Simulated scan of single mutants.
Amino acid sequence: MAIKHLRTAFASQYQPGQPARLVAGEAMQEPGGDYEALHKQMKRLFNSKPGKKYGRFSEDLGECPFSAWLKDYLEDKQSFSALTDRLFGQWQELLNACQEEFDGHLMLVHEALADSEVAYLLVLETDSAMRFDGSERLDATDIISLSRLNLAVRIELDDWLGENGSDNYLTLVHGRGTGEPGDLFIRLAGFTNNVDVEKETLTFLDAVEAFAKNSEPEKAGEVRAKAYEFCKDQHALGEPVEIEALSGYLDENQPERFKEFASQNAELPESGVLHPDHRKVKKLVRIAGSGGGMSVSFSSDLVNQAVYYDRDNDALTITRLPKALREQLQRYLETREE
């Protein structure tokens, strides 16, 4: 990982209806050191965030000019400093009309990876901390939060501008509770949602389930487990699921088998890429439910082995109880008997 360019600006809007305040730092080239460490942590938070959205830049350049400015910078028609001057200026204008209080550091990073280039636009939040000053008096200060990231967008530059570009080169983190500033950030980034994650999750689950049922009975559980493992690993990397890569992972001896099966039995996108929600994909390997004061969760492999469901009586029988659960039940019953 190597940061080519980075710049930050602190923006605040404490009195809605009044001009927002913005203080920009200098544009830095290959800052290294602590900046690399900070960006690495922000990437970890970005990749781990559930519920990300996928899309592309809005075609309304009058309303969302960031993509045009970014393209000019990448084509050496303007400097990174000029690009960020424009970007920060628009952010301040958007916050001028914001009716909610806001403060945060806007950071734009252009990063070169081993085989591609990406850009990140993030809002860094702050946490309060206490310290002793030089006179040993307690003082409150603000520090960058290394555990929260609620507004960010990643731009896959090669997928956007390359000859074989993807239709979904933007990945958005839009946390709950960000309110109007969150909506303004989406407008600043020019993000347009182009992927129905819920639909693609169902497509993924249906394709894997059908393939598992079509496999040898003793290998069905292995298929589900490997599909979930692959999806989880992709989520950790912040990457979608490529059907061709998944197919090879599920069966190294016949790497095309799942791909061919899925193309015939599921409505796959032309790109051959899905963006399933890894939380819902967990249904492949776990059965869970709660309600009426009860919460039950167990591996799907235990059905008809240690967990038995009686459909006629709507009853669940569990054998081989976990040791901790057995001990809790025994203590509870002993207390009731006393």
Rank of each mutant, 00 (worst) to 15 (best):
R286P: 01
V273W: 01
F298A: 01
H278S: 12
V281G: 03
S297P: 00
L274M: 03
G272I: 04
H275Q: 05
V273G: 00
R286C: 06
D277N: 13
R279N: 10
G289M: 03
L250A: 05
H278T: 09
S263T: 15
I287C: 04
N304S: 15
N253L: 14
E256Y: 13
S290A: 10
F261D: 10
S290D: 06
K259Y: 13
Q254K: 15
A306C: 06
L302A: 12
L250H: 05
S271G: 03
F258Y: 12
V307N: 01
H275G: 03
G248T: 07
S299V: 02
D251E: 10
A288K: 07
G248M: 11
Q264R: 15
V296A: 03
A306V: 04
V281D: 03
S263N: 14
P269Y: 07
N304E: 15
V296C: 03
E270V: 09
V303D: 04
E267F: 14
L284K: 00
L250D: 02
V307F: 04
S299G: 03
S297K: 08
A306S: 11
P276L: 01
K259M: 13
G292R: 11
N304Q: 15
V273S: 01
Y249N: 11
M294Q: 07
Y249M: 11
S290Y: 02
V303H: 04
R279I: 06
V281F: 06
E252I: 14
F258I: 09
P255L: 12
Q264V: 13
F298N: 00
G248H: 09
I287W: 01
N304C: 12
G289T: 01
G293I: 07
S271D: 05
G291D: 08
Q305T: 11
K280F: 10
H278D: 08
Y249K: 14
L274C: 03
M294K: 09
D277L: 10
D277Q: 11
L284D: 00
R279H: 08
A266Y: 10
G293W: 08
D251T: 05
S300N: 05
P276Y: 00
S299L: 07
M294P: 00
L274F: 02
E270C: 04
L274H: 00
G248P: 05
A288W: 02
K280G: 02
D251V: 07
K283V: 02
S300R: 11
D251K: 11
P269K: 06
G291I: 08
S290T: 02
L268I: 05
F298D: 01
G272S: 05
R286L: 12
D277F: 11
V303N: 04
Q264I: 12
V281R: 05
D301Y: 08
S299D: 11
A262F: 14
S271A: 10
N304R: 14
E267Q: 15
S299R: 07
S271T: 04
F261T: 11
S263A: 15
L268A: 06
G292F: 11
E267H: 14
V307L: 04
S297E: 09
V273R: 01
V285P: 03
S295H: 07
E270L: 09
R286G: 04
Y249Q: 10
F261K: 13
M294C: 10
Q264Y: 14
G248E: 08
S271C: 03
S297I: 04
M294A: 12
A288R: 08
E256P: 06
S297A: 08
F258R: 08
E256K: 14
